[in-house]
């Protein structure tokens, strides 16, 4: 047991926590903004895969990490734009649309990957290292910095700007906003596409910043965890940060446990985040911040 508490292991867990939390935090913050406008985007998994692939492909072709990141954002935006078209404009059931796009995102990424790389294994891409910020004592990826900076940015946007207030109002009572001339459609599009860009970047962190690889199930459930984090965080930016770090920490500890010879089932730690989410849901029930119109399409004049 003692070898788990050596400084090397603890430092390892610290870095691993940040590394694991980064894509979760990026995707969850995007989803937070999206859900605040009343649209539940369940296609995070597919959108992140799309971002991971687009980032990987473009970075590989151009040799530029920056171009890869831009491509990842565009890839995520592309998929979420379809989401917005279906749910905001066509008013399709959001759960159905989200699940369908999930499959589409995973399928497209896999299809393009196979047709471009012909099932080759890993392909060398212009180094994970260029993702790091140039602080020698602090080898932290740019995207991790971005993820943490986005916490106050999203908070200020949602709670300190009129646009954010109106966006949240749309999520609670679109009819009230419509009556006052607040554009519902534009705000929901902005929110959904923002969520898509963030999910795309989150995906690219895994292919560009973490492994330098792309493989079809590279996201392996992180999209769903990000959705759980939004619930765990009770739709608050600060608690989404806490949730991401907690989930990251538990995962990192679990990995360290597997590597050590401590005889403790790591599956317990793997399951813990989800248990915590359920517990948080139960305790938040009476003062939940869930957007009141989440998943309910708004039809003008249906009164």
């Amino acid at each position: 047991m003692e070898d788990l508490f050596t400084s090397a292991v603890l430092v390892g867990i610290f870095w691993a926590t940040l590394r694991i939390a980064t894509p979760l935090l990026l995707a969850a913050l995007g989803e937070l903004v999206c859900e605040s406008s009343g649209i539940l985007n369940l296609s995070l998994e597919g959108t992140m895969t799309m971002g991971a692939f687009a980032g990987f492909y473009v970075a590989n072709e151009t040799g530029s990490i920056l171009a890869g990141l831009v491509a990842a954002g565009i890839g995520g935006a592309f998929l979420s734009l379809i989401m917005a078209l279906m749910t905001v404009t066509a008013k399709v059931n959001q759960v159905v649309a989200g699940l369908a796009l999930n499959i589409l995102g995973l399928g497209l990424a896999f299809f393009w990957y196979r047709s471009i790389y012909e099932a080759e294994g890993s392909i060398d891409i212009p180094t994970v290292e260029t993702m790091q910020a140039p602080f020698e004592f602090f080898p932290i990826p740019w995207l991790t910095i971005l993820a943490f900076v986005m916490v106050p940015v999203v908070w200020v946007f949602l709670y300190r700007t009129k646009y954010g207030l109106e966006l949240r109002s749309v999520g609670h009572n679109p009819e009230a906003c419509d009556m006052r001339g607040v554009g519902i459609i534009s705000r929901q599009y902005v929110a959904v596409v923002f969520g898509g860009v963030m999910a795309g970047l989150a995906g690219s962190f895994l292919s560009l910043g973490s492994t330098g690889l792309f493989f079809p199930d590279i996201i392996s459930g992180r999209g769903w965890i990000a959705l759980a984090i939004v619930i765990f965080g009770n739709w608050r930016a600060t608690w989404v940060l806490v949730g991401s770090l907690l989930f990251g920490f538990l995962e990192a500890t679990q990995l360290a446990l597997q590597a050590s010879d401590v005889d403790l089932p790591y599956q317990l730690l793997l399951a813990l985040p989800f248990v915590l989410t359920i517990v948080a849901l139960v305790f938040n029930r009476s003062r939940s911040n869930v957007p009141l119109s989440l998943t309910i399409p708004y039809h003008r004049g249906e009164r």
Partner: peptide, 10 residues
Amino acid sequence: VIGTSASQWL
């Protein structure tokens, strides 16, 4: 404030 012409910074 919703829908007013107040400035973007609340």
